[in-house]
Structure formats: C-alpha cells, structure tokens
Design a binder for these strands. Structure first.
Lengths: 143, 143
DNA sequence: CTTGCATTGAGACACAGTATCAGTTGGCTT
DNA sequence: AAGCCAACTGATACTGTGTCTCAATGCAAG
C-alpha cells in the first residue's frame, strides 16, 4: 500500500478539476492522506523537506478551495488542517491539546435560517468551532 | 465630551480588576470607545502613534481577556476588533466589506447542549461567525 | 515622598502565509 | 516520439499579526 486510498480520491478530484498532478502535489497529498490527526502547514512542509514551502502552502490552499481538507481554528487562534471527511460539519476542539473531532450540528441550519429571515444580510455561510476539554485532558483541567 | 462614556466603563472595569490606569491605556481605551465600527490592531496603533505598538497590542489583549472588546474573524481569515456590547453574542460579517453586526443566536445554546450530551468532551465555549453580503454590498454581488 | 512592581517602548523575533520570477514539467497536440 | 506552453515549482523576499526582551519609567499604596 504505497498509496493511501484517500490519496487517490484527492488526486482524482484535483485531476477532474483540471489541475496537473505533479510529483510535488502527489507527495503532499500522499502525506496528508496518511494523517489521521490535525497537522500544521509548517509541520507538513518540514516533513516534505525537498519540496518548497510555497508549494506546500499552495497545495494546501488548493485542497482547501476544493473542500478536500479543512482548516481548524484552535482556541488560542492558531490554525491547523485536517482531512475533510466530506459533507458539511463542524469541529469540536480540545482547548488543551488541540485534538479535534468532527461534529454534526444538525439543528444549526435552522438557527441560521432564522437569522436569514431576520436580517438584511444575504447569508452565504458560517463558521462554528466548539471548544472543550477532550477526555484525555479533562483530568488535568485546572480546578 | 473629552471622555466617551463607554471609555469610562472600560477604565472602571480595568481598575476594578487591579490594573493600573496608565496614560497609554487611557488613550487606547478612549480611541476604541469612540469607534462604532470594526478596527484592526495596526490601524489603532497607527492612529495612536506616539504609543508603542507593543503597548497597543497588550492593551487589546487585556480588554479581550476581560471581554470588553471582541475579536471578529472575517471570511478571509483576517481579524479585527470591536467594542463588545456585553453579553454573549455572535457576529454577522459581510464577506465583501467586512462590516459586522451583532446577532443573538438564541437557540444555539440548545444545539450546543445537545452536543454536550453526546460527547465525551467537557465543553467550555464556542465560536460562531455567520457570513453574508451586507445590504450595501448585496448589489455588487457577482451573479 | 518613597519605593516596588506593573507597565512601557524600541526593536528583534516568531509564525503563517503571499508575491515574484526565472526555470521546469505535465500532458495535450501533432 | 517530439514539441509546446500554460501550469507549476522553488528560492527568496516580503507582509501582516502578534509576542518577547529588557532597560527605563511611572502608578499608586503606604
């Protein structure tokens, strides 16, 4: 299994959009697909050293625009990325260690719709992050 | 009216927390209190030139920690600040010009509570930003 | 009025990301 | 199989946002 199945999906998706499958992109995607946890852009760049930092960032942006990965904003405001397991979802982020889980806030759409009816704004999207202590960090919680 | 009423509230609040009311802080707060719209840290620093940039940032952080101002994340990921008109609320942000309105997402707590019941995480907070075109920008909207 | 400790300012640093631009390459076209 | 060229790459410089350090300063408690 030199090629993670998820990587193939990402590659196919990019190809379908008319992007070139270059060897740097191939490597970046392979590396991302192998990760089950959050990663930062710099981590990824460091790990893929022969590949230029700019290229790593460009590929991330590409995947982000295609909705193939998602950006997670930690409670301290720093950001990292993770594979998007397709479909609209939100994140439950540990304020202590940054571990992240996907959550489906099923009724949020209804709440947003209510805003839609009550404002002059033409609503096009939203960003939600829920913060808490993960089971692992709960024990170390101050007080 | 050399001192905006809102400024007095902020100052009192800081004093109550045991912080010193120095003249740089006084000026920063006065300047913030006079703004009705979003502002960026750099804007503020530029406007208050004789005051050190670091001090402006430190004062912003202070006010942020005290919940006296809030941070708004625009749709492009850049951030700005605005006076917090107290109480928990969220932001409706224009994706085009960055104009911001406070919104009260009344039922969101119920949604979050539902998550609380369904996860191992000990939930302590959340961040919500709703994006759309403001009335002014709606007309210029591409298609 | 003194004095301690919080605060300040200047500047260096850190981090995340973008811009530039000459050089390379994937993949269509023939 | 060869050629072409827009898309892509990598090195590097730059930007924006914020933090750190550390000597100097100044609130406010006594």
């Amino acid at each position: 299994m030199t090629l993670h199945a998820e990587a193939q999906v990402l590659l196919d998706d990019l190809r379908d959009q008319g992007f070139k499958i270059t060897s740097p992109r191939h490597l970046v995607i392979q590396s991302i697909a192998a990760k089950s946890e959050n990663f930062t852009a710099e981590e990824l760049a460091a790990e893929l050293t022969p590949i230029g930092r700019a290229t790593v960032y460009r590929t991330l942006k590409l995947l982000l625009d295609q909705g193939l990965i998602c950006r997670v904003v930690l409670s301290d405001g720093s950001v990292c990325y993770r594979l998007s397991h397709r479909g609209h979802h939100h994140h439950l982020v540990c304020v202590s260690c940054g571990a992240t889980e996907d959550v489906h806030l099923s009724d949020v759409e209804a709440v947003i719709d209510r805003v839609r009816g009550a404002t002059e704004y033409d609503i096009v999207g939203h960003r939600i992050e829920v913060y808490g202590f993960c089971p692992r960090c709960r024990g170390l919680q101050p007080r």
